[in-house]
Amino acid sequence: MSSQMRLVNLCSNLMPVAPMATVTSTIHSERETSMADQTSFNHANAIEIKGLNKWYDAYHALKNIDLTVAHGERIVVCGPSGSGKSTLIRCVNSLEAHDNGCITVDGTVMGDAASIEAIRAEVGMVFQQFNLFPHLTILQNLTLGPMKARGLSRKDAEERAMKYLERVQIPEQADKKPGALSGGQQQRVAIARSLCMEPKIMLFDEPTSALDPEMISEVLDVIVDLAESGMTMIVVTHEMGFARRAADRMVFMDHGKIVETGTPSEFFENPKTERCRAFLNQILKH
């Protein structure tokens, strides 16, 4: 009960005083429903971000971000470098701690360590630099999480690993070390490693930015395939062709703010803001 109150306070610390009572009661009743009926944990939204702020010392990296992602929705976040795109998605699984505001992932309000652990169990992440474990084989990279964090037997974990390696189309590399693979293959392994944890939500932090041009499409194909399977995802990327193909909604950020959101067709054909138009002109010029 006390932790619930703390979380409610955490959420409301940015809210104006007047509507605080209503906010509290909404969250309260939601929690009670979920406690009453554990089996139907059916929340309308996969991710809810409200009034999110983040500072790096004096630098205001995220300014009052509000973003709601529905289940199964595919969001592409773009914007100039330093606009806070990566910081935003890194807040979603608490790799970066936010300073105030409220993040709810699949019904879990981010607060204490237990809630962060619960959220990370639902959220997979793919990094720009792959971040594979170089001392382990591909197969060991994939089985480490399921075996140690989920308690799967080696046999089950390896079966699952091979299933996802086949899905990203590199089962034959299972016994190699990451260093022996190309960048594109490494990133596909990284995607498979995340999938082995069977997350409900996937975050991609510039997944193709560190790749040679000829390897970008093999990675994007895997991500598109995943998008088509109904996975909820937030992708930070500059690949606008991919965004048109796979995104339900575009989010454009600049200077730590969400400047514009919209469907890909609205966004590309008819951007509302001048800043967004300028950005698109820059990256679509060539």
Binding site: N93, L95, E117, R120, A121, V123, G124, M125, F127, Q129, N131, L132, F133, P134, H135, L144, G145, K148, A149, R150, A190, R193, S194, C196, M197
Partner: peptide
């Protein structure tokens, strides 16, 4: 050891001790 290793370990649900034992210290 690059910070990305710790972050990757966090995202696949490893605890601090597991991260040290299986990811960071061996490297």
């Amino acid at each position: 050891i690059a910070r990305g290793q710790t972050e990757a370990a966090k995202t696949i649900g490893l605890t601090y001790a597991q991260t040290m034992r299986y990811v960071i210290l061996p490297q």
